[in-house]
C-alpha cells in the first residue's frame, strides 16, 4: 500500500536546516498494523508530518509511493482525498466551526475528488450516529465546535471518530495514547480495532508499549536518530518495555566506536 524508500527530510530551525529523517525504508501492506517506537526526538512525529504534507519540512531525498502515486507531490488535502489520515498528537481546536459542518465538508470534498455526488444530509446524520456509537463518542459532541472545550481523552476519541467517518486506507496514529488514562486508552484502542479491515492499514506511532497491548501490531520498528534501527514482530515492543531504549543507544554507540 505504501512504500518509503530512503526518505530524508530536514526542518528549518534557528540554527539552520537540521536533518531529522536520515533515510527511512518501510513497506506497509493492506491489512497490516505497524508500530513505530522510539525515544523522544528520534523523528517519529516528523515522519507523520512529512507523510501528511505539513508545511515546514523539506524532503531532501528518497521517495514515498502510495497506491501507485508519488505521495510527496500531493497537497495535504489531495493526500487525504487519496485515503491518508493522521490522528493528531495534539488535535487542533477550531472555534466557530462545528464538528458536523467540518466533517460534512471533508466527506463531500473527498467524494467530489472521486467524482461522486455529495452525501445527503439524512445519510450523513445516520452515519454520524453510527460511527459515534462505534467509537463511543458522546453524540452531543458532534454538534460542538471542533475540539473546543474537549478534554484530552475526548479530543483523541474525536480523532478516531473522524477516522471512522472518513474511512481512510492508511491511518497514522501519532502518539494517540499520550495523555490518556487507561480507560480512555482502552476506549480509543477498541475504536481502532473495530475499524481495522483487510483493506486498510495502520501506522501506530508511540513512545510506550501499552497501546500495543490493545492494538496488536504485525510489525514493530524502532526508530532512533532519524533511522529505523531495528524491526521485528510484536515481541520487540515487549522487549522495549522491559529494557527501555538504552540498549539501542548503547548498540549504536558500540557500532560507531
Amino acid at each position: 500500500m505504501i512504500t518509503l524508500k530512503d526518505l530524508r527530510a530536514t526542518v528549518e530551525t534557528e540554527e539552520g536546516k537540521k536533518e531529522i529523517l536520515k533515510g527511512i525504508n518501510l513497506q506497509i501492506n493492506a491489512g497490516e498494523v505497524h508500530a513505530i517506537m522510539g525515544p523522544n526526538g528520534s523523528g517519529k512525529s516528523t515522519l507523520a508530518s512529512v507523510l501528511t504534507g505539513r508545511e515546514g519540512y523539506e524532503v531532501t531525498g528518497g521517495s514515498v509511493e502510495f497506491e501507485g502515486n508519488d505521495l510527496l507531490e500531493l497537497e495535504p488535502e489531495e493526500r487525504a482525498q487519496h485515503g491518508i489520515f493522521l490522528a493528531f498528537q495534539y488535535p487542533v481546536e477550531i472555534p466557530g466551526v462545528s464538528n458536523t459542518n467540518f466533517l460534512k465538508t471533508a466527506i463531500n470534498e473527498i467524494r467530489k475528488s472521486k467524482g461522486m455526488e455529495p452525501m445527503s444530509s439524512v445519510e450523513f446524520l445516520k452515519m454520524m450516529k453510527e460511527k459515534a456509537k462505534l467509537v463511543g463518542l458522546d453524540p452531543s459532541m458532534t454538534s460542538r465546535y471542533v475540539n473546543v472545550g474537549f478534554s484530552g481523552g475526548e479530543k483523541k476519541r474525536n480523532e478516531i471518530f473522524q477516522l471512522a467517518m472518513l474511512n481512510p486506507k492508511f491511518s497514522i496514529l501519532d502518539e494517540t495514547d499520550s495523555g490518556l488514562d487507561i480507560d480512555a486508552l482502552k476506549a480509543v484502542a477498541e475504536g481502532v480495532i473495530k475499524l481495522k479491515t483487510n483493506d486498510n492499514a495502520f501506522l501506530v506511532i508511540t513512545h510506550y508499549q501499552r497501546l500495543l497491548n490493545f492494538i496488536v501490531p504485525d510489525f514493530v520498528h524502532v526508530m532512533f536518530d532519524g533511522r529505523i534501527v531495528k524491526s521485528g514482530g510484536k515481541e520487540l515492543a515487549l522487549h522495549l518495555e522491559e529494557n527501555g531504549y538504552d540498549w539501542i543507544t548503547d548498540m549504536k554507540e558500540t557500532a560507531e566506536a
Binding site: E77, R79, F85, V92, G96, V146
Partner: peptide, 27 residues
Amino acid sequence: LSDQEMFYLRSRGIPHDEARAMLLQAF
C-alpha cells in the same frame, strides 16, 4: 490565519481555499 488550523482542515481533505473560507467564516 492559524497554520495549525489550516493544516488540520486540509489533512481531512478540505482544499486550501475552502479551508481558508471556513476559518474566516467562523471568525
